[in-house]
Design a binder for these strands. Sequence first.
DNA 1: TCTTAGCACTCAGGGGTAATGAGTGCTAAA
DNA 2: TTTAGCACTCATTACCCCTGAGTGCTAAGA
Lengths: 362, 362
Amino acid sequence: MELPERKRRILKAIVENYIDTAEPVGSKALADSFDTPISSATIRNEMSELEEMGYLEKPHVSAGRVPSFAAYRLYVNELMDRHRVATNELEAMRLMMESKMREIDNIVVSASKVIGEMTQHTAVSMISRKGGDRVKRCELIAVDSGSTYAAVLVTGSDVKNKMLRLASPVAPSTAAMLCTALNLAISENRLEYLLPSVAQSMGEDSQVYQMTSDILDFIRQTEAGSKPEVYIDGAARLLDNREYQDTGRAREVLEYFSDRSKVGELLESANGDPINVRIGPELQDPSMRDASLVFTSYQIDSNTRGIVGIIAPARMDYADVTAKLIAFTQTISGVMGRQRKQLKDAGETDERRTEDEEDGSR
Amino acid sequence: MELPERKRRILKAIVENYIDTAEPVGSKALADSFDTPISSATIRNEMSELEEMGYLEKPHVSAGRVPSFAAYRLYVNELMDRHRVATNELEAMRLMMESKMREIDNIVVSASKVIGEMTQHTAVSMISRKGGDRVKRCELIAVDSGSTYAAVLVTGSDVKNKMLRLASPVAPSTAAMLCTALNLAISENRLEYLLPSVAQSMGEDSQVYQMTSDILDFIRQTEAGSKPEVYIDGAARLLDNREYQDTGRAREVLEYFSDRSKVGELLESANGDPINVRIGPELQDPSMRDASLVFTSYQIDSNTRGIVGIIAPARMDYADVTAKLIAFTQTISGVMGRQRKQLKDAGETDERRTEDEEDGSR
DNA sequence: TCTTAGCACTCAGGGGTAATGAGTGCTAAA
DNA sequence: TTTAGCACTCATTACCCCTGAGTGCTAAGA
């Protein structure tokens, strides 16, 4: 069932040509582009067979051929040559990142900016935590004179806060007690008993009860990882592509983008592979039918990973995009490894940095 | 220099017709639309005078006339009749808001969603604090075993946090001391003396010094109000408009949107007027040359206000948009007033809610 | 003096037709 | 199995003409 060598070469050439020009490619032009001379007639024969096999499509009878989604799939899986990014580009990337990555909170933003800038496509980026965030500790801080409190949750690698507006003031000492009780319950993993016990001792319509219930909701929400923050950079760049010259199509995709949770869900499906590619229909959404998503993930800390990728027309330069994404994750784990190392060197040592693991799976 | 009555009526009709159809309006069609019969010839005469005065433009000699930016300006300032939104729409808005406004943190997001939905245009929204945020208090929380701290700042109406990664651990007791010192310095307004004194007692390369300096930077950043959060809803809706059928134009504007700080700056210029309107060139940005921004602000608390508006082609239904924005601010201050009232009723009473103030300025 | 009817003129947009040319499939010879 | 040749298809472009909406101007009417 393996495709014979010549067919592979022809298909590869067609895909690359189409990626380049966005125009159906014909037998004549293709024949000329080969160094070993093959006649256009031969190519025509091969083409019509490739068409039968489902790798090519004709927009209409007298145009050239266009790769099908199956062709793109084959191309990324087998045909494409994986090239490396030029060292000067790599250096530029490292510089961009060193300067932007100083603060962990905007690592997602920076990631999408950097990769968007590099590829000149629309970049998406998010942070995913293993099984949601585990809340480790909780603090209560009076903000207003009396009635407004902030609940601050400390999780694996982040701190979240929420304002609580209470109808009547709660004494700081009461709040401190509640805080202690909460932390005890968290550390003993018995959160579910807390609310009933508060109800018993303070009454169901006490302010403290209300406050506790709000905080528990917040904890639950945080641990469920309710809404992952998804960043999108350069959505407008999509309009540069021929396939989105038609405003109708463009609108569909931009609308899809505006629902971050959909995009987030897509990205969450990243598996351990160094590079994930979802082509056209594989994205399972009609508005994305002629786009592809190429993405990858990188480790931020033991249970947090970043996911970053680019969305562009199915006709995109997969080789280039893939190479840049790989370079990106390597650079970022380099940058973060260095930071981590710096941290450890000054204190004690207990973690080995894992970098440059090659994974030739599939 | 007042425009005579008939010219005003004609200009108004032209603007409204153009808003409606997006097509140059001609003398004949216009004549027919009047109840008091005027001949098309008369209208032609009036039109050519209006053109001389700079209120009308001809796309080309044999088309009708199109309003100039000056015409839109005149229209919003004097010609347009300010209509009210239908009560059922108002009710729908109130419902949408009641459900979405429960949490203050996403008031901006909800505001842009609601108003975007109502007008079917691109909505922008942000929060602006009077003279930046004043930091009132600060807390330090150890996150990791030793080396990672969170600084939590309490400001007028919000809480901000930032992770600090330190090279070596700082003892909790030291952190607590630093915290006390910080709060003292804040309350006495002598922040600038803190760093030198830490340097003196702990040494310039101590961890505490580093930490202090980081926190002070964060405080400064917060007080400068570095980056206001600007939300944009329904950017894709822009593509529905005839003037952005051309992808080039659309791209320009979408790119403009992606620079939130620019949009934020624009919105910051809201003055006390119930409604602000910036038409085309008044936006001072070439990519926005044929768009307009209509926006308004509403009070969130004593020194925080929200700003919300819509961005659409200069040819937009100003009367409708304006009415909806006004209805929005009234509804929101109603909703928030009720929340505030609820809060006070349960505790003490000290603030009167101000609602339904009519302001016929200008 | 203002308004209106009439008329000549302009010009974008629509529809039809023809020319162009890239590309195909098929056949027959190498 | 490959290649040259040939007839055929059909999207795209250019061209042209026509139509109709709209203008400006002039002269007559109120």
